[in-house]
Design a protein around this nucleic acid. Sequence first.
DNA 1: ATGGTTGTCATACAA
Length: 271
Amino acid sequence: MAFRITTWNINSVRLRINLVVRFLKEHAPDVLCLQETKCPNDQFPLGEFRKLGYGSIAIKGQKGYNGVAILSRLPFASMDAVNYCDKEDCRHMSVVIGQDARRAAGLTIHNFYVPAGGDLPDPALNVKFAHKLAFLGQLEALASAGREQRRAEIIVGDLNVAPLEHDVWSHKQLLDVVSHTPIETETLTRIRLGGGWKDSVRDLEPEPKKVYTWWSYRAADWEASNRGRRLDHVWHSDDLSPALQSYEILQEARGWERPSDHVPLTVTYDL
DNA sequence: ATGGTTGTCATACAA
């Protein structure tokens, strides 16, 4: 049966709750993973999600910054959150789908919000870039340590790295721009391979096709200039490769009223 | 080479 999972950096879940509701009504994935909710747990709009059938909710938020959430129509057997870089900055949550679920029983889902890394791509001069590299380094260690027992696992999130040449509008012009520098793109690829994960979207849509999930707010006309990047990702453990079916990037959501700068990315598996 | 926009919270900072 079809199992659909969406990842979306919403850039404030409270400000854009109406956009989330619209998306869920029109697309109704089984699981929605949000990043940058910017919302403390006690202020999260739980009721809006429950009304739409998303009764399983895992949230980890803080005031003003960051924050992740997993909303599901399927029951959770467990949920967990890991603090990276010894910070309580709400950049990871994971859940396991319950054995009583009608689909995807036993599936593990990780939702990440990797630090953006600031402007200057030099860890000696920019503590935010150093934090990003440290975060990725910790992820790499966890990924390779768990590789042998890794089954039925999906990793999603705003990883804030566009790893491939055709994940950005201009490879040459972005080589020194945070999100596409060699240290970041090489590290992200090493993490993915070391963890035994497949890039769900690129397995369905190989290069040289351009694939973007983010367009800057700073462009005068994001659609006309189309200077996008693929910062949002869905990976699956290799045992799920036969189940991989399709993906959809809802680019039109970038043109909705008061949009996020990221759009929803949905992948469908036969689970 | 530079600045461009947005959200949150307070008029700075992160993205």
